[in-house]
Amino acid sequence: MNIFRLLGDVSHLLAIIILLLKIWKTRSCAGISGKSQLLFALTYTTRYLDLVTNFVSVYNTFMKVVFLAASYATIWLIYMKFRATYDQNHDTFRIEFLLLPVTILSLVANHEFTLIEILWTWSIYLEAVAILPQLFMVSKTGEAESITSHYLFALGSYRGLYILNWIYRYYMESYYDLIAIFAGILQTVLYCDFFYLYITKVLRGQRLQLPA
């Protein structure tokens, strides 16, 4: 464990908690893409299958349980409890256009052709693009509540911090995983325009407005 990965996990945890609190407190999931949340739940489910098979550490197990529970709780809030506030008309990204290439790529580019490894690879590639429906929805609605933009900033930062973690681990532990690194860079790059808007606008108290 190193400071970059710890900060990354904390940022990830913060993002998930911000989202849960936003929906629970405002009793509304307006502006939130249910499709992205579904993709995140799929990501954690396929990646944390080893939750019960190999124990890494208390921290590792605790975080996996929290991420799984929070992502399913968020889906329940969006599609069940506050279903009436779910903005279906703006959450229209075709996720099949994500699932197909991710599935093909995980079958072609993986470290080992075993079920558990393919599922892990699939989850790594899926996570890289899982935010696209949400970013698409923000661009369609043309704006995002500031709490939603804080959520996106924390979520985008987490994998950016993981990139620093991979640099650290490469030099200090001569460990690297090209699949995770490639997907992590793509995932972080997808947030770039949002990061720019967040830094230049939201931090100055303005609303996040995307050029429609």
């Binding site: 190999n54 590792n60 991420f67 892990w120 993981y162 460990y175 690297y176 995983d177």
Partner: peptide
């Protein structure tokens, strides 16, 4: 690449 046995990253 020396693959970490088991996944220690989240």
């Amino acid at each position: 690449t020396n693959r970490a046995t088991g996944k220690d990253e989240l």
